[in-house]
Amino acid sequence: MKRFASTIIVLLILLTVGVGVATAQATWKPNKPITIIVPWGAGGSTDQVTRICAAEMEAALGQKIVIVNQPGASGSVGTKNAMDAPKDGYTWTAGAAADLATYKVQGMLDTDIRTDWNIYLSVANVSVVGVNVATPYKTFQDLLDAFKKKPGQITVATAGQSSAGHIGIEMIRKYTGIDYKHITYDGGAPAVIGCVSGETQATTQLAVEQANMIRGKAIRPLAVMSNTTLNLDGYGEIPPITNWIPDFKAGSNYFGIFIPKGVPQNVIDTVEKVWKDVIFNSQKIKDYAKANGAMFAPSYGKEAQDRAFAYYQPVAWLYYEAGKAKVSPDTVGIPRP
């Protein structure tokens, strides 16, 4: 009996030690700063929310997170640099999941969001059709009429091919048959400034990128690319584009932080815990979303992949049908909706 009791005690001790070791192995304690490559210019939608998320995560990780802006080729340059960095967990990237998911379709980057990346989503954004205040366009119908009257002449600022703004104007083109003159910039913020300064007549970048200029009456918002009204803090209501294009369908454009697969598992386990404990409960991100016309929508793992897919699937086919894709989406695992 004594021998049996002793055996049980030894087994319990070993089990306790084993659990302790497993817990220690699952916790990543970074011993140097983490770099997040933002593959777009400073001040844009990716830059904005990534800086807030990084600041929120630093205390939980016990380490500084450094943001490095590396714009170029619609975000593919900075993303590739994150892919090529050592798989030690210290180099991440960020952006719209739809961009990451369609680089391969567009022939920009040979990567697959589902097999090559761990994704951590924070907010969902919507695009706004905004115009320079000196233009004569007072309603979206005015702008639509101008597109039709002057095909290929109305200038539209976006952050480049595959950006949210480019997706937005291409969706309008799909539903209405209009043509436009595409003027590209190295990020959403520069695109918005381009519209404000008069370099372009319109922009279709995200609400979060136009919000301050709208509040400052430097951009006139004509429509939000949604089927519901956007109530923007400090401005008021922006009508939905479905008032003019009833069958217009736009999903939620999710943004987040992306970590290449192949890094140590304890990095992923730790980041998932921090995302769940910190980002899911972040009042700063909630306040940012509310003030700038975004939706607070954190997720990770399969849920994040499923949310992202619901948006990038039709986007990939939009590019293909517009002749802007290098390969058919179904050849890279994205079936037709």
Results as ranks from 00 to 15, higher is better:
residue 301 G to C: 09
residue 215 R to W: 05
residue 211 A to R: 03
residue 234 G to A: 15
residue 266 N to R: 03
residue 159 A to Q: 00
residue 196 V to N: 06
residue 325 A to V: 04
residue 16 T to Q: 08
residue 208 V to W: 13
residue 258 F to T: 01
residue 271 V to E: 09
residue 109 L to W: 09
residue 303 E to R: 00
residue 112 D to R: 10
residue 49 V to I: 15
residue 334 I to N: 13
residue 334 I to V: 06
residue 85 A to G: 08
residue 288 Y to H: 09
residue 190 P to C: 04
residue 231 N to D: 15
residue 209 E to W: 07
residue 145 D to C: 04
residue 104 K to Y: 03
residue 40 W to P: 00
residue 95 G to I: 10
residue 113 I to T: 01
residue 269 D to H: 04
residue 34 I to R: 08
residue 116 D to G: 06
residue 209 E to F: 07
residue 304 A to I: 00
residue 228 T to F: 08
residue 37 I to H: 02
residue 143 L to I: 02
residue 207 A to G: 10
residue 25 Q to P: 01
residue 223 A to Q: 15
residue 14 L to H: 03
residue 119 I to C: 08
residue 69 N to I: 01
residue 19 V to Q: 09
residue 167 I to P: 10
residue 282 S to E: 07
residue 325 A to H: 03
residue 141 Q to W: 02
residue 272 E to P: 00
residue 166 H to F: 09
residue 183 I to Q: 13
residue 131 V to W: 07
residue 50 T to F: 07
residue 26 A to H: 11
residue 269 D to K: 04
residue 189 A to C: 01
residue 72 G to I: 03
residue 89 G to D: 13
residue 181 K to E: 15
residue 265 Q to D: 15
residue 337 P to N: 04
residue 185 Y to E: 11
residue 227 N to E: 15
residue 11 L to Q: 09
residue 317 W to M: 04
residue 65 I to P: 13
residue 3 R to Q: 13
residue 147 F to D: 07
residue 26 A to M: 14
residue 8 I to P: 09
residue 166 H to E: 14
residue 27 T to Q: 15
residue 293 G to A: 04
residue 217 K to W: 00
residue 272 E to G: 00
residue 67 I to Y: 07
residue 12 L to R: 03
residue 251 G to E: 12
residue 80 K to F: 01
residue 298 P to R: 01
residue 311 Y to N: 13
residue 313 Q to N: 10
residue 30 P to C: 05
residue 137 Y to S: 05
residue 189 A to E: 13
residue 43 G to H: 06
residue 61 L to Y: 08
residue 58 E to R: 01
residue 227 N to A: 13
residue 191 A to Y: 02
residue 172 I to G: 03
residue 44 G to M: 06
residue 55 A to I: 00
residue 123 V to P: 08
residue 221 P to A: 09
residue 138 K to S: 13
residue 221 P to L: 08
residue 331 T to F: 06
residue 101 A to Y: 06
residue 121 L to K: 02
residue 300 Y to W: 10
residue 164 A to T: 05
residue 37 I to C: 02
residue 254 Y to S: 05
residue 241 I to Q: 15
residue 252 S to Q: 14
residue 20 G to S: 08
residue 134 A to M: 07
residue 52 I to S: 10
residue 165 G to E: 02
residue 62 G to N: 10
residue 90 Y to F: 14
residue 155 T to G: 06
residue 77 V to R: 14
residue 273 K to E: 12
residue 278 V to N: 10
residue 318 L to G: 03
residue 193 I to N: 11
residue 105 V to Y: 04
residue 138 K to M: 10
residue 160 G to N: 06
residue 131 V to G: 12
residue 111 T to W: 11
residue 149 K to R: 12
residue 132 N to Y: 05
residue 219 I to Y: 05
residue 79 T to Q: 11
residue 135 T to E: 12
residue 5 A to L: 15
residue 291 A to V: 02
residue 281 N to G: 00
residue 53 C to W: 10
residue 151 P to F: 09
residue 188 G to L: 06
residue 134 A to E: 15
residue 189 A to N: 05
residue 144 L to T: 00
residue 48 Q to A: 15
residue 97 A to K: 00
residue 117 W to D: 13
residue 263 V to C: 03
residue 292 N to G: 01
residue 290 K to C: 01
